[in-house]
Simulated assay, not measured.
Amino acid sequence: MFKTISRQLTLAALALMLLMAASIYAVMAWRGQPLVIEASQSLVDRTGGSIVNALDAQLSRVEGNTSSLAALAESLPRDEALYLQAFPRVVDDNGNSAIAGGGIWPEPGAFESGVERFSFFWARNSQGDLDFLDDYNAADIAPYQEEEWYSSARGAEPGQCVWSTAYRDPTTGVAMVTCSVPYYLDDEFAGVATIDMQLDGVAEFLTENGGATGGYAFVLDSAGNVIHFPVLIWKRTRCKGWRTLRTVCLGCSP
């Protein structure tokens, strides 16, 4: 009799434990999991918002400096020595390493009558200093007025920045995007002020901050071209070793 009672108590205890486990699982699945997902989504939203705000701050800084260049081009006398002295300080932005270069690009004849190309451009060298480059005024290359970053600013409002698509500068070899702001003399389009923003710094920033939630961050230009997408490492239990992919996780090779 005592063995039967002991066995029944043991079975009752096991049944009670199973019932408690099932109840806990049901509560976690019904209430706990949605709360975890909601908290995770909130963290992702906050992290993504901080990344966007940081990039917006960089872009706004570039836009403000480019507008300052355009305002100077409208107000300063058209004197070559004065341009060479005044504009590099604005382009340099106190040694801002995100700036690849920038300058002033007048329309044909707008700076000096009869002269088609009279640009003032500075590019940052490997030591972080700005060098004046006269390459874009050479007669054996296409006029800078035909470049997309120049033509896209025609007709834009004074002070308005027009961002180019991502490209690699043919002279410096640096991957960048350009903020172009038109300037006007006597209410007529007279040229474009530009500041170039290096894309290497954007990629480093996203790499450092994009994995805060275990995910990644990527950025597209105005035309939908990928400026930066992280290299993702995926490990699958049925795969032999690791695979490195630049877009999405593909099926594993046998």
Rank of each mutant, 00 (worst) to 15 (best):
2 F>K: 11
4 T>W: 02
5 I>W: 00
6 S>G: 06
7 R>H: 01
9 L>M: 10
14 L>V: 15
16 L>E: 10
18 L>T: 08
18 L>E: 00
25 Y>N: 13
27 V>A: 07
28 M>Q: 08
29 A>H: 11
30 W>C: 06
30 W>Q: 11
34 P>Q: 08
35 L>Q: 05
36 V>A: 15
38 E>N: 13
38 E>S: 15
39 A>G: 11
39 A>I: 03
39 A>M: 05
39 A>T: 09
40 S>K: 14
42 S>Q: 12
44 V>G: 00
45 D>M: 03
47 T>E: 12
50 S>F: 01
51 I>G: 00
52 V>A: 15
58 Q>I: 06
61 R>W: 01
62 V>N: 04
65 N>D: 12
65 N>L: 13
66 T>P: 02
67 S>C: 06
67 S>K: 11
69 L>P: 00
70 A>H: 01
70 A>C: 02
70 A>L: 00
71 A>M: 08
74 E>L: 03
78 R>V: 08
78 R>Q: 14
78 R>K: 14
80 E>C: 01
81 A>C: 05
84 L>F: 09
84 L>A: 11
85 Q>N: 12
86 A>L: 02
87 F>P: 00
90 V>G: 03
93 D>K: 04
94 N>S: 15
94 N>A: 13
96 N>L: 11
96 N>V: 04
99 I>A: 00
101 G>N: 05
102 G>R: 09
102 G>H: 05
102 G>I: 11
110 A>C: 03
111 F>G: 06
113 S>H: 09
113 S>W: 00
114 G>D: 14
115 V>Y: 12
117 R>M: 05
120 F>V: 09
123 A>W: 09
123 A>E: 09
124 R>I: 07
124 R>C: 08
128 G>W: 14
128 G>K: 07
129 D>I: 06
130 L>A: 09
130 L>M: 08
132 F>Q: 10
142 A>G: 05
152 S>P: 02
153 A>R: 05
155 G>E: 06
155 G>W: 07
156 A>I: 10
156 A>M: 04
157 E>V: 12
161 C>Y: 06
162 V>I: 15
164 S>N: 06
165 T>E: 15
167 Y>F: 08
167 Y>T: 09
169 D>H: 06
169 D>C: 03
171 T>Q: 06
171 T>E: 06
174 V>M: 01
176 M>D: 13
176 M>H: 13
177 V>D: 01
179 C>T: 09
180 S>V: 03
180 S>I: 01
180 S>K: 03
184 Y>H: 10
184 Y>T: 04
193 A>C: 01
196 D>K: 07
197 M>W: 05
198 Q>N: 14
198 Q>A: 10
205 F>Q: 02
207 T>L: 07
208 E>I: 08
208 E>F: 10
210 G>F: 02
211 G>V: 04
211 G>H: 10
212 A>L: 12
212 A>R: 09
213 T>H: 01
214 G>Q: 02
214 G>N: 04
214 G>L: 03
218 F>K: 12
220 L>Q: 12
221 D>W: 15
223 A>E: 15
223 A>N: 14
223 A>C: 14
223 A>I: 15
224 G>I: 04
225 N>W: 03
225 N>I: 03
227 I>R: 03
227 I>W: 06
232 L>S: 09
233 I>E: 13
233 I>P: 00
233 I>L: 11
234 W>Y: 06
238 R>Q: 15
239 C>R: 11
243 R>E: 13
248 V>W: 07
249 C>I: 12
250 L>F: 04
252 C>K: 08
252 C>Q: 10
